[in-house]
């Protein structure tokens, strides 16, 4: 009838790891932002699983907030990407090094 909590936690850990790998290995800023969405989704899966497990609604409510923050993050991140592309004509992270120390 029910799904074991450990299964969901394992899935969320794997998705989080895939997101981290994408964030570290890819150089295209668009794909980097998509990896961030994957990481946020992994966190959301965890929150909903615990909310279901502990018979509480708080996890679900926090997911609503997380989705709002993800929307804000996507909007600002893509705006920065647009401004960057207008100046540099590139989406490759390695070619953007003005701020490099």
């Amino acid at each position: 009838m029910t799904i074991p909590l450990s299964w969901v936690l394992a899935l969320s850990a794997v998705v989080f790891g895939i997101g981290v790998i994408g964030l570290l290995t890819r150089r295209n800023i668009l794909i980097l932002l998509m990896s961030l969405e994957l990481i946020l989704n992994a966190a959301n899966i965890n929150l909903v699983a615990f909310s279901n497990h502990l018979h509480s609604m708080r996890g679900n409510v926090i997911v609503v907030f997380t989705i709002a923050v993800a929307a804000a993050e996507a909007a600002v991140g893509l705006a920065i990407l647009l401004a960057l592309f207008r100046n540099r004509r590139t989406v490759n992270l390695d070619e953007v090094r003005e701020m490099k120390g």
Binding site: A13, V14, F16, G17, I18, V20, I21, L24, T25, R26, R27, N28, R89, T90, V91, N92, D94, E95
Partner: peptide
């Protein structure tokens, strides 16, 4: 302009991600 698909040291980073998981 899409650039190289992945960083040239990607196995190292994949290892870091795997360790995190």
């Amino acid at each position: 302009a899409l650039g190289a698909a992945a960083h040239r040291r990607w196995p190292v980073y994949a290892l870091v991600g795997g360790a995190t998981t």
